[in-house]
Nucleic acid binder design. Structure first.
Lengths: 135, 135
DNA sequence: GGTTTCATACTCGGATAATCCGTGTCCGAGTCTGCATGG
DNA sequence: CCATGCAGACTCGGACACGGATTATCCGAGTATGAAACC
């Protein structure tokens, strides 16, 4: 099991948007250029982030993406959930009557990770990269 | 991203083996029966656990699987790693010069989860299920 | 000058294709047990 | 009684098939900008 490339693209895009002036629009073309992805594919991923309410899109000339006014500093977990979905990492396929003990342990483990990711905001990283590389 | 069914089978098999007499051999047929999987497929999964040194196999008539004498009480993490591999869940595909900040955060998050799973032994579950259901 | 028109630069969304990986089956090979057969 | 052989019950491992998800690409549609054209 592995996180998808789409999640990778989404996280890097968000980091870039957090690092730029809040109101400024950035085109898909630029964002795709930085990550060496095709713009059309990246736009599909960003659509998910729009629907999750983390970024806004403006069409037409000089259009592009920028952070959402509300929720301008999303956590890692929010971004990941927007791309990967909310389902838990482990689902016991057996149907032993009630709660599967293994399932319970796995869910607890996942909560450990998610709690960490929920406390990590994108802005923390942005402030770490002062004059360093841009992604 | 999701844990594979193979991991599910491996965990349930280990739980069953931990719950039975240490020296007793259990055939793939029995183990597969309990989990409603095909024996041939389950044997492929168990081969990985054998190579990881967590169980032993005996071929021939009355053969089967049992816990390894050394390492008779593996942790969740060991089992998962044996099936899913050791690679980290997130790998930044960009090649920005050095350590990717995003990558670092993701690795930390994973370590949170793995630390939890490393402290969870199979035997803990086995002792919880006294007379309850067997898987 | 003000309004209209139009080319241009974008995002949006559906349809489609390619590729990879998990899941599972099949089958031949090797291995051990236990019984039967024969000296 | 002992040894040999053999059938049966197992695991082992590779080759292969299938399906679904990920990763894209293409293209038509909608939308906003800005400049040119027209009155």
């Amino acid at each position: 099991m592995k996180y998808s490339k789409a999640t990778n693209y989404a996280l890097h895009t968000m980091l870039h948007l957090v690092s730029t002036a809040p109101e400024q629009l950035v085109s898909v073309h630029q964002l795709a250029e930085l990550q060496k992805v095709s713009p059309t594919y990246l736009s599909k991923i960003l659509t998910k982030l729009v629907k999750a309410g983390m970024i806004e899109s403006t069409s037409g000339a000089n259009g592009g993406y920028r952070l959402s006014r509300k929720n301008p500093d999303p956590s890692f977990l929010e971004i990941i959930h927007a791309i990967e979905g909310q389902a838990s990492l482990f689902e016991c396929s057996q149907n032993h009557n009630a709660g599967c003990l293994i399932q319970q342990v796995m869910v607890q483990a996942e909560e450990e990770m998610e709690s960490f990711l929920n406390n990590k905001k994108m802005s923390e990283l942005a402030s770490q990269m002062k004059g360093a590389h841009s992604l």
